[in-house]
Design a protein around this nucleic acid. Structure first.
Length: 211
DNA sequence: GCCAACGTTGGC
DNA sequence: GCCAACGTTGGC
């Protein structure tokens, strides 16, 4: 697994590895997203055909040391096992995900990535020196898997958490698209499914003045 | 199966 | 760095 360079904030924009989202498959303990480096791709229009699902993936933009290793853009969240497994395996090639900066001074949605490799076992769970080592995971029944994602683009403007929350609150009363957004209703999920309506609404915020 | 203690996430 | 929210663990 690639080791991230130390940088103050923001996603890496180059490097061959793509971004990896790691999600624990079973056992119900946790899930994690790890983003090491993001590969820039030519902006490609997808012709607008409907993709299956949309996602929001949390990552930490700031360096953090764990077991003496800079694990940087990594976040972990407790998940319900079944849901976690479903979501992990539900992420399909070319589906889009917002990447969200968490645990930092300015939390919010920073950009877009897409799935370029569907779930596969994460080898680092078996490596004792890895911060992701999990002694309870067995080779023949791995608990953790990852997907690779590729950088698509930054948001036209950063969408702060506070702005999303304000819409969420308003939509709870008005029945708007963010009324059930998982970021607020299941706040500890590190990988969240978005409805088409949620995804489109958030994209529409890019065009608007910050509220 | 309850629930208090504990650990982690993540906003602030 | 603090701590609220909340998920997990383990004693009973």
């Amino acid at each position: 697994m690639p080791r991230a360079r130390r940088r103050p904030a923001g996603p890496d924009m180059k490097g061959p590895e793509g971004k990896r989202s790691k999600t624990k498959n079973l056992g119900g303990a946790s899930a994690q997203v790890e983003s090491s480096s993001l590969q820039r791709t030519p902006a490609s229009e997808d012709g607008g055909e409907a993709l299956g699902s949309y996602w929001l993936m949390k990552s930490e933009p700031e360096s953090r040391l764990e077991k003496g290793v800079d694990v940087k853009v990594r976040s972990r969240a407790r998940l319900r096992a079944r849901r976690c497994m479903e979501w992990d395996q539900a992420m399909r090639l070319d589906e889009e995900a917002f990447f969200y900066h968490s645990n930092c001074r300015a939390p919010g949605i920073a950009g877009l990535v897409k799935i370029v490799k569907e779930a596969y076992p994460d080898h680092t769970q078996f490596e004792k020196n890895s911060p992701h080592y999990d002694s309870s995971s067995k080779e023949d029944n791995p608990k953790w898997s990852m997907v690779d994602v590729q950088f698509v683009r930054m948001m036209k403007r950063f969408i702060p958490l506070a702005e999303l929350r304000a819409h969420h609150q308003a939509h709870k009363a008005s029945g708007g698209p963010l009324k059930n957004m998982a970021l607020f209703t299941h706040q500890r999920l590190s990988v969240q499914r978005l409805t088409r309506e949620e995804f489109d609404f958030i994209l529409s915020l890019e065009e608007k003045e910050p509220s």
